[in-house]
Every structure is written in structure tokens, then in C-alpha cells.
Amino acid sequence: MLFYHLGKYVLLMKAALKRPEKWSFYWKEIAREMVSIGVGSLGIISIISIFMGAVTSVQTAFQLISNLISSSVIGQITRDNSILELSPTIGALVLAGKTGSNIASQIGTMRVTEQIDALEVMGVNSPGYLIFPKIIAGVTMIPLLVIISITLSIVGGGVAGVLSGALSQTDYITGVQAEFNNTILVAGMVKSFIYAFIITSVSAYQGFYTSGGALEVGESSTRAVVVSCILILCADYIVAQLLL
């Protein structure tokens, strides 16, 4: 069963990533998807990022503060966690719920209402037209969202840390600037690209092979989120193992 789906997924991706029939037509779709995935997810990513950073800062302060450890460590831990794990992974899990379910239900509805059949009868490479722009938009916009999320998470951590009285603003900034290792930024960005591909392609796959009606569209949407989340966490482990 696993190999059956894997084979179908690979064949779908092969068709989706074929050379587009007409680039000018695809650019418009890519731009539209960029707005939908990028701008459309900015609000929720901003909110969760600020709170992720705030919670990390406050909880680190609670667990680590002692006379032997400088309070600036809180800034350093919040920064590293935000870059390496919180913004890419938690952000991707949230985006799997928002963007992934949206992609699966959109393509699934097109399938059950014969819109995909209409594309195919016209001679349009339907996986290319429907999935390629979403993947391109995903792998460009999700890493950008992750960068914004990292920034907001670090800012949120600082605000929460200072407001709770755990450390001063100067200590936090000192911690954020201390001993920065480029590897964590590379790992964070590599993760965001991989997660973006997983979210868009897996959700598109679930939507594309929907059959039935409204109930099945809902099921595809749920399956898209569940499978994407599991694969994101698997990929998280693999990237961590390989790059760190």
C-alpha cells in the first residue's frame, strides 16, 4: 500500500514538474498562489511566532536562571530555538493545517466537480497547471514566512522576557548576538524548503486523487494535514541528523 501511494505520488510529481505549456499563463498562477500561500498565511504565522518566542523566553528563564548562568543565555536559547526548530517546524505544522488543507480541498473539489476532467479534455497537463504553481509558490513563500517568523519570535521572546522581569533588554540583545553559528540558520532554511515541498506536494496529491463527493473532499483535506505533519516531523529528524 505504501509503495502503491509512493509510486503514484512520484508519477504525479513527474507530470506536475514537466515543462509548462505556456510560461506566461503559468506565471499568473504562480503569482496568485504566492499571494494565497504567502500573504494569506502572514497573519497566523505572525501571531504564533510572537507567542512561540515569548513562551520560549519565559520558560527558559523559569528553568535556567541561577547565579551561575548569565541571563543573556535566555536570548541565545530563544534565538537558536526559533531559527532551528520553532519557526521552521511549528510554522510548517501550522501551514500544513492552513495551506495544506486549502490545497487539498481546492484540488479535490475540482476533481469531484469534473473541472480537472475539463482541463484534461482540453489537452491541458492538469497536474502541471494545478500543482506546479503551488509548489513553486510554496518553496518561495514558506521560507520567506519562516524568516519573518524567526524575526518575530526573537522579538516576542525579548518583549516577554523584559516584561516578565527575567532579564534586561541589553542582556537579551547580548544573548541574541552571542556565539552565532551559521549552521543553525542553514539547517533552518533547508528545513523550510523541504517542509514547503512536503506541504504543497502531499496536499496536492491527496486532493488530486479524491473521488466521490463532499465527504471525500473533507477526508482528503484531513489526510493531507495528517500525512504532511507526519512527514514534516520525519524530515525534521532526518535533516537534524544530517546537518547538525
Binding site: E21, K22, F25, T109, M110, T113, E114, Q115, D117, A118, V121, M122, G123, V124
Partner: peptide, 28 residues
Amino acid sequence: EIGMLFQGSALFDSLSVQDNVMFALNMF
């Protein structure tokens, strides 16, 4: 060379009537 009218019309929801009719012209 084939045109098809589907049972539920199968118009593309996200496109206007004009863009629906223009779709194949834009593409091909």
C-alpha cells in the same frame, strides 16, 4: 479539436465567465 459540455458544467470556480471561455485560447 474536441469541445465538451459536462453534466455539472465544470466551469472553473476561480475564474470569471470571460476567463473560463478564454481559457483554452490563453493556453494554446
